[in-house]
Design a protein around this nucleic acid. Structure first.
Lengths: 154, 154
DNA sequence: TCTCGCGTTTACGTCAACGTCAAACCTGGC
DNA sequence: GCCAGGTTTGACGTTGACGTAAACGCGAGA
């Protein structure tokens, strides 16, 4: 009986989701307070199903890209009951496009920041190589350290 | 006497910078409290010079890409007095590279979110076009509205 | 002279997103 | 029967980034 994560009838205790997604129980309960999650109950205990798990994934992705919990809730709500009429769907569509534009702008900012920092790096490397070239490899180590970390993450 | 914004000797009152960058005086004073700005004084009044203006631009860009004020202060400090020794410079370099990696990761997340939202848009458009195609152009208006806004910003 | 409007400082308020702690509950194992 | 360990619900604490209110200074204009 290999209980697969992808089997839709599979349920999860709070602990399991916390371990899997590296969040605290407090966070999950907080999301529930705010209306982002609504797990079932077994007696007093929360029981998360496949849909709750997906929602949690979306919540965390949303947070990573800078959405507030309120915005995330809005989006989830839109996703959920856009059977609530065509007008509702049109509003969702507008919201989504708005978000896309905002995210594109944010990406531009990030690219700008990356370029600025890269220029700063070049400047520092130039100065350091003329001053104390022995200190340079330390920084270069970082890349290989990162590469191995990325490998490990895969 | 056309006082050009780019002339380095040009100075600014607090309100001018506030209007230009859409921030409140409270914010500028707050940044000063936190050591991110240090404008000169004319009596009791703050006088911002060209360098302060550039720093403010950097602060706001930093905020947009998700840096905390503390992180921004660190970066500005590093930029400022990396004459504080080669070891300091090496540390700056490491910090910069760290930041670059973090920003790249953030960009990946954003790209993911954009794709997800675009898929959502496609889905909604499909459903809407079969249901109430008359509601679609409203959303499309948004693009042209944005284009004109971008034009105005230039 | 008096009042505006903008500036200043100091101090407290707020909001989001949880952390932390307490007190109670259920459950399995000894 | 009882204890440890995980869960529940409050309730208060915390941090960052300001907002807001009070009280005052100061030069320009009616």
């Amino acid at each position: 009986m290999p209980s697969d994560l992808r089997r839709p009838e599979r349920t999860f205790a709070i602990r399991q989701l916390c371990l899997e997604f590296k969040v605290t129980p407090r966070a999950l309960r907080f999301y529930e307070d705010k209306g982002l999650l609504a797990p079932a109950r077994d007696g007093m205990n929360r029981v998360y199903n496949h849909r709750d798990r997906v929602r949690l994934q979306l919540i965390l992705q949303g947070k990573r890209v800078g959405f507030s919990l309120n915005e995330i809730r809005e989006i989830l709500d839109l996703y959920d009951h856009n059977d609530g009429g065509a007008a509702q769907m049109a509003r969702s569509l507008r919201k989504f496009r708005e978000r896309i534009l905002a995210l594109r702008a944010q990406r531009e900012d990030i690219d700008g920041a990356i370029h600025a920092l890269e220029e700063g790096c070049v400047r520092l490397e130039r100065q350091l190589s003329g001053l104390r070239p022995d200190l340079l490899p330390q920084a270069a180590d970082y890349d290989s350290a990162m590469r191995s970390r990325l490998d490990a993450a895969e």
